[in-house]
Design a binder for these strands. Structure first.
Lengths: 207, 207
DNA sequence: ACCTGAACACCGTTCAAGT
DNA sequence: ACCTGAACACCGTTCAAGT
């Protein structure tokens, strides 16, 4: 209606470069299993000169932080959609854990970027995003405690926090051990998550 | 007895350069909280020309892998000395976990290097070292199962492996969440480890 | 066997300039 | 406001040479 579609090259000159750079960087993280690629390579992929990125990010680390932030958003969406419609917290917890581990397995380099040293100088990003992931888990624990499905006092914030941290630690650690292939040869993700949750439940179940 | 002590500079020309490079790299990892430093900087610290490292490592990643291997050796020693003389597996497990988390807290960048993307292209290092860490934990679980202290069948290798992986995941994940300061503000390591172990024990205890 | 100097093709970042 | 080209000080890696 309003004229011919703009070419990609043209679009980059019209305000989409920031997004295009994040997408190109995400693609490189995924392909190279690492974030050691150069900023100039990202610019090349986006079809701009090697210093154009500096109009949108003050340095390379800021671009990586933006990629990580996008990863955290995806993680949150996956966790939430995994538990959507599951009322029983005892079922929601493993479903949520599976989504968490699977994101890591699907894109190990992105997962490591999100929780890795590239964000040491951008602690706001890691903290805010981590708080969101924790909130999803804590909500499940809270609901389980409220209906007596977990052996956690629903009125003790410190108990809820401790239980959430224990579960988060286990899920997070499993993800990284699987990613690192350090947890043994060719581990089956679903089985591992189930085993992990079984141990967690034994700990959480009232007796 | 056999003459004056050799100067450092002299020594590096006599076969210690490999070790000196690993030590310099470890110091840089510790100081910069990252392994983004240059190989040339490592060479400078060791007092040699920028290409001398290539006599000992085929590329930068191999030096980092050697640093990681040293880190894994330290981790193993810390875990073993933490449980030395503790007969009760119920006491050995938290002691071992504490040593694990504390190494990570003491040197976050080294810990992340050990389990990070720098070793993606050196999977032998990560796998062999990971297997050692796992073996220490598995031994404790096995002993606990044998005396009936844990609700794990001592004759089921798969149950032992699953329990070990669950515990390792929790300890590993807690370490990284604490390192990333993503687990909340100013978390107390000892309390966190105790809470974690309490949940693990509730899961492991026979009922 | 181990180390050095010169060289190559890169990189992150800055800056003056263009539109 | 956003992008480019030239420039700077660096880097990883290679290679011919030195001892």
């Amino acid at each position: 209606m309003s004229g011919e579609p703009l070419s990609d090259t043209r679009r980059y000159h019209h305000g989409d470069l920031r997004r295009a750079l994040i997408e190109a960087a995400l693609a490189l993280v995924t392909e190279e299993q690492d974030w050691g690629f150069s900023l100039r390579e990202v610019a090349r992929r986006a079809g701009v000169s090697h210093n154009a990125p500096y109009n949108h990010f003050v340095e390379k680390k800021d671009l990586l932080a933006a990629v990580a932030a996008a990863g955290f958003e995806t993680l949150r969406e996956r966790m939430l959609s995994a538990i959507a419609g599951i009322d029983d917290p005892r079922a929601a917890l493993p479903a949520c854990a599976r989504a968490y581990v699977l994101l890591g397995v699907e894109n190990p380099a992105l997962f490591r970027l999100m929780f890795g040293p590239a964000l040491v100088s951008r602690p706001e990003v890691a903290k805010a995003a981590g708080a969101q992931a924790k909130a999803v888990l804590e909500d499940i624990v809270r609901r389980g405690a409220a209906i007596g499905a977990f052996a956690v006092s629903p009125t003790s914030e410190s108990e809820l926090a401790a239980a959430t941290l224990a579960i988060w630690s286990a899920v997070h650690g499993l993800t990284l051990l699987v990613i690192d292939e350090v947890a043994g040869p060719q581990i089956a993700v679903d089985t591992a998550v189930d085993d992990l949750m079984r141990f967690q439940f034994q700990g959480l179940a009232p007796r």
